[in-house]
């Protein structure tokens, strides 16, 4: 994997606030890469630093082997798709898309054919002469995408590209973006606060927290092997039980020893995904971890069912039952069981 984008020790401060704290990250050629984090984690600032709209106080940005840290946005071989789409309201769709090619001073016939081609690919063929305010949100989003892609950048940066769309359209566009990225062979670097979106689309995800990298890895790695309580809780759903780490697992007051692979000592947290937790009526005899409590709430989702169990130590554990299983009665005693291999023991 040759990195097409290399960020080296990027530092960005606003007054006394450090928005990006010494972040180093490589993005490979043809990769679909996601910067994921809660709002205020610095992911958009990092993207704007790549695009050239923010000047970092420290570090280097290298794109395609070239140091672009001091280059203006216009001179960088990457394009940004803005969260607001930033379409030019006084220009037609075709003029919007042609704008970036006109800046390259390409001959008119070539501009026209490339604009027509990209509009066709974006299913906007019939909208060339419309103004942005005559389009739906989804169409505007595709115009913004077409306007950036027509430049054939090495890297396309996307700032929360789907956040303005409704849920159904967003899910369609997730797959559409992934297909487009694979077809065009362009590196996509997307910023999102939506972990589900990142899991669906990205080859690799970098999770940011408070301007620092929390973890970088494939969706599967982040989901199955989170490196911290923050990542474990941010991606997908997770049950946490606090206790003290030992060589065999976590010793929890009131619940006893819960087993799991552990390299830690001292205060720790045991994390287990709700879909790994089985709901039983009696303690299993197979050596699995088991904790008891009473059913407090049942949430029906259609495909599955979430059951909240209040444990004897006061904590809540959530188990996910597949469709078709009988819903337990509220107030009934229940045992939550999971195999030790599904325990993740993380520092507190």
């Amino acid at each position: 994997m040759t990195p097409v984008v290399q960020m080296r020790n990027i530092v960005k401060r606003y007054g006394s606030v450090t928005a990006i704290d010494n972040v180093s990250l490589d993005v490979g050629d043809n990769e679909f890469f996601a910067l994921l984090g809660p709002s205020g984690c610095g992911k958009t600032t990092l993207l704007r630093t790549l695009a050239g709209f923010e000047a970092p106080q420290g570090g280097q940005v290298i794109v395609g082997g070239q140091d672009v840290t001091r280059l203006r946005p216009a001179k960088r071989p990457l394009n940004l798709m803005f969260q607001s789409y930033a379409l030019f309201p006084h220009m037609s769709v075709a003029r919007n898309v042609a704008y970036g090619l006109e800046m390259e001073r390409l001959p008119k016939p070539e501009i026209d054919s490339r604009v027509a081609e990209v509009l066709e690919a974006a299913q906007l063929g019939g909208f060339a002469n419309r103004r942005p305010d005559q389009l739906s949100g989804g169409q505007r989003q595709r115009v913004a995408l077409a306007r950036a892609l027509v430049k054939r950048p090495r890297v396309l940066l996307l700032d929360e590209p789907l956040s303005a769309l409704d849920k159904k359209l967003r899910q369609d566009m997730q797959l559409e973006l992934k297909r487009l990225q694979a077809e065009m062979g362009i590196t996509f670097l997307i910023v999102t606060h939506d972990q589900e979106e990142a899991l669906v689309m990205a080859d690799r995800i970098a999770v940011l927290k408070d301007g620092k990298l929390a973890q970088v890895g494939s969706p599967g790695e982040l989901y199955e092997h989170p490196a911290s309580r923050f990542v474990a809780g941010f991606i997908g759903e997770m049950n946490f039980v606090e206790g003290t780490a030992t060589a065999q697992g976590v010793e929890v007051p009131g619940l006893g020893l819960l087993r799991g692979a552990s390299t830690l000592t001292g205060p720790a947290v045991l994390a287990v995904r709700p879909e790994r937790v089985d709901l039983l009526t009696a303690t299993p005899g197979d050596g699995r971890n088991a904790v008891t409590g009473t059913v407090e709430q049942v949430a029906y989702h259609g495909a599955d069912m979430g059951v909240h169990v209040r444990l004897t130590n006061g904590a809540v554990m959530r188990a996910l039952l597949r469709a078709g299983q009988d819903a337990p009665a509220i107030g009934a005693p229940a045992t939550c069981a999971w195999a030790a291999e599904h325990s993740r023991i993380l520092p507190e």
Partner: peptide, 15 residues
């Protein structure tokens, strides 16, 4: 004016 339209213009290569 949406400031991002100004940035978009720069990003697309305009002086």
């Amino acid at each position: 004016i949406n400031r991002e339209t100004i940035e978009a213009s720069e990003d697309l290569g305009a002086s």
